[in-house]
Amino acid sequence: MQQLFNFFIKNKTFVLFLLLFSYALSLTIQSHEYHRSKFINSSNQITGSVYGTFHGITQYFNLKQENQLLLEENSILKMMVFSHEDLDPFDSLLEFKYDLHPSLVYKNSYALPNNYLTLNKGRNDSIKEDFGVITSKGIVGIIDATSKNYSRVLSILNTNSRINVKLKKTNYFGILSWDGKSPEITQLKDVQDLVKLSIGDTIVTSGYSSTFPSNIPVGSIDSYRLNDTEDLYIIDVKLFNDMRNLEHVYIIENTDLNELRALNLSDE
């Protein structure tokens, strides 16, 4: 026993190094698995407020572009309202299936294989995990960790991200994932080879999951090829969103979620 202690005292530097290094490694390995990196994440008070402070400065840099985007979105919505004169969007009796919470992106990354965003809404704004995040142009990701005032989004530019999407024209569905290379291109897998594809076809969300409503735009087909066993397509999807430049996003809350969950539970 004495010798063991002596050994530790003699090599205390190495022991400390080994301890800290293996702890860091275990954190790394955890972060490569979906829904495991809960402990080390940027949606806590300190990091959130630091990002928030500096966001106050940097948000002016692309104000012009953001205004343009919001204006475009507004005009589309106005057009939709004008062409449905019988529908009054401010009618308080109207029940909406989805609640949208506008939010700001405090931190965004796209250069790593596993990217996350930090948003300025959290549990206090009734944001929960598994809510979807979109912009006016397309989808961004899914909330995967929340704190009181901040939340973290698992970006679609994350090799762990899996999102159910479909081809708008033919309704065939597949899984959208990312290979970690270009921040403009994601991969759609599991589409059968008998489906007719053409370059430029629109991909939208399928609505099979409770996270996203159906028919939210995702991207268009950039190129496609067959996989190794030649029965499924691998489709490169060019995203409508510019993931490198995100500022205003919407968090989608499915107000039927509890009902849906209860239904699924009673099925089992």
């Binding site: 490694l25 972060s31 080390i40 940027s42 990091t47 596993n114």
Partner: peptide, 8 residues
């Protein structure tokens, strides 16, 4: 790591 969400 905490700031950049990069595990360890």
């Amino acid at each position: 790591d905490i700031f950049l969400d990069s595990g360890g």
